[in-house]
């Protein structure tokens, strides 16, 4: 099987290994931030249920848990920030063709006008998609956790 040449998705000569590393780190931070935000929102909502005196058991469904959409709503914020990071990265990749030299002059002489777009957008778009996929997977786990932990009597109607 032919090995994928990642350098084709970035400007020629671009140190994509380093920048992919930064993006991967930012993606990991994004995932962790989502987990922290969800844990915090979930704990806060869960703590308001009707507990017994020593807070070991939920005793009634008098107080309902906040809907999952409300609890998890704030977890999208890191994804939005990461998406903005990807947009900024794409802008910087486009600027790369006019920084220090005008290599855009070469790109404009290529027979395909897709080449420039691919070299500016492919990397950031791939990471943005990874972030979206990670967020969806995390949301699935959050939902499963929500369903498993919140007693049926406290679930919103």
């Amino acid at each position: 099987m032919k090995r994928l040449d990642i350098s084709r998705f970035y400007p020629p000569g671009y140190d994509y290994g380093r920048w992919n590393g930064y993006a991967a780190m930012a993606l990991a931070v994004c995932g962790m931030a989502q987990i922290i935000l969800y844990s915090s929102a979930f704990s806060s909502a869960y703590g308001q249920l009707d507990w017994n005196w020593d807070h070991t058991r939920i005793v009634s469904g008098r107080i309902k848990m906040a809907p999952f959409a409300d609890v998890a709503g704030g977890c999208w914020a890191p994804l939005v920030i990461f998406a903005l990071y990807c947009v900024l990265w794409a802008v910087l990749l486009r600027l790369y063709f006019s920084q220090y030299s005008n290599s855009i002059y070469i790109m404009r002489r290529l027979s395909s006008n897709r080449e420039l777009a691919v070299r500016c957008l492919a990397g950031p778009a791939a990471f943005a998609l990874c972030a979206l996929a990670l967020s969806l997977i995390l949301m699935l786990f959050f939902r499963l956790y929500y369903n498993a932990v919140v007693p049926d009597m406290c679930k919103p109607l």
Partner: peptide
Amino acid sequence: EHSFFPDL
């Protein structure tokens, strides 16, 4: 004005 790729 140069049109090469500087890091290549």
